[in-house]
């Protein structure tokens, strides 16, 4: 370890000592039932409330039918959720590709806009299903670290899902009746089952009678993903989400970027241990898997990690 790094580590320890008073205050607040909510969690909660703000829908088992549903939201949020105020971009993309077989300018343009401005910050900060996974991971059960030889190839699966189920099949494979089902939504999407299916079934008895094998399959997929979320951090985002796959293409070029200052790094690896997506923060901070949740930034005592909308030269 270089002398400069040792100095910085010592400075970090000194900061710890200086921060003991604040730490005691925090402990006292926690013992009184207060707990500081992170910036990420506040943004996630606000986003979830904003995209699902139609409270009447939850009470009556209906969905919102206002004009805002013509706008695609940036996150995976089923438009059949009783509270949804906007359209799901993945559902809309499948519909646009399958409906009239034309190039989906509007939906694709919306997705590109979200991607180039925020990249996968959408996944880390805005997505309600990401919030669900984050909360489930808080449950105190043993945590699994997926071995690299399984983890790396498995991450490729989300691109296969995007290309095959979201783009290729809706564009080219219609059923005998000429209807093109949204394949991803129909067979996989756990956000649709959780936000749309289960909530609609609870509120709407007529729909309950129609539930059959497909619904059972979807519930099974959802339960497996939610159960896995207790042991593995964000398994759906890592391996299955086609929306995350789409945004990951823009991660390196998006206006919102993470910055890693190598000269300030003390090589403590706290950032990599804290990363929910197991990103090699010190090597590839703006890689395709970074969801810009900011956990690495929070734990870095050396201040080597920052994020903003303007790339520093």
């Amino acid at each position: 370890m270089s002398g400069m790094h040792r100095d910085r580590m010592n400075a970090g320890r000194q900061n710890d000592t200086d921060g003991q008073g604040a730490g005691r205050k925090d402990a006292s607040r926690q013992s009184r039932g207060f707990r500081r909510i992170s910036f990420q969690r506040v943004v996630q909660l606000l986003s979830a409330a904003l995209v699902n703000g139609y409270v009447v829908g939850f009470q009556k088992g209906t969905i919102f039918t206002g004009k805002s549903k013509a706008i695609c939201v940036p996150v995976l949020n089923c438009y059949s959720c009783p509270g949804a105020l906007g359209a799901c971009p993945i559902g809309s993309l499948q519909e646009a590709l399958g409906g009239r077989h034309h190039f989906p300018f509007y939906v694709l343009g919306s997705l590109m806009l979200f991607g180039i401005v925020l990249g996968r910050a959408v996944c880390g900060l805005l997505c309600p299903f990401g919030l669900v996974q984050d909360l489930l991971y808080k449950i105190p059960v043993p945590k699994w670290k997926v071995p690299g030889r399984i983890d790396k190839p498995a991450r490729f699966l989300k691109y296969v899902i995007l290309v095959v189920l979201v783009i290729f099949l809706p564009a080219f494979l219609a059923t005998k009746t000429g209807i093109v089902p949204p394949y991803f939504c129909k067979y996989i999407c756990p956000a649709g089952t959780l936000g749309g299916g289960i909530l609609q079934m609870i509120a709407n008895p007529a729909l309950r009678k129609l539930a059959g094998a497909l619904f059972s399959w979807k519930v099974l997929v959802m339960v497996v993903i939610l159960a896995a979320s207790m042991f593995i951090s964000r398994p759906f985002c890592r391996y299955l989400c086609p929306l995350g796959a789409f945004y990951s293409v823009f991660n390196r070029f998006s206006f919102y970027q993470m910055h890693f200052e190598e000269s300030a790094c003390v090589a403590c690896k706290q950032c990599e241990n804290a990363c929910p997506m197991a990103v090699e923060v010190t090597k590839d901070i703006n890689g395709q898997e970074c969801i810009r949740c900011g956990k690495c930034k929070t734990v870095c005592r050396a201040g080597a990690i920052t994020s903003d909308f303007v790339r520093k030269s």
Binding site: I63, F64, T65, K67, K69, A70, I71, C72, C78, Y79, S80, A84, G86, A87, C88, G91, S92, E95, A96, G99, R100, H102, P104, F105, Y106, V107, L108, G109, S110, L113, P181, P182, C185, K186, C189, G192, T193, G196, G197, Q200, M201, L207, L210, A211, G212, L214, F215, W217, K218, V219
Partner: peptide, 27 residues
């Protein structure tokens, strides 16, 4: 987005989104 709006694609999105998508909820 502008081309899409001119081609009224946003209305197609609206049409789909204001009805309960039975496939999406597993029915």
């Amino acid at each position: 987005i502008a081309i899409g709006i001119m081609r009224q694609e946003h209305l197609e999105v609206l049409q789909k989104a204001v009805r309960i998508c039975l496939e999406c909820i597993g029915i």
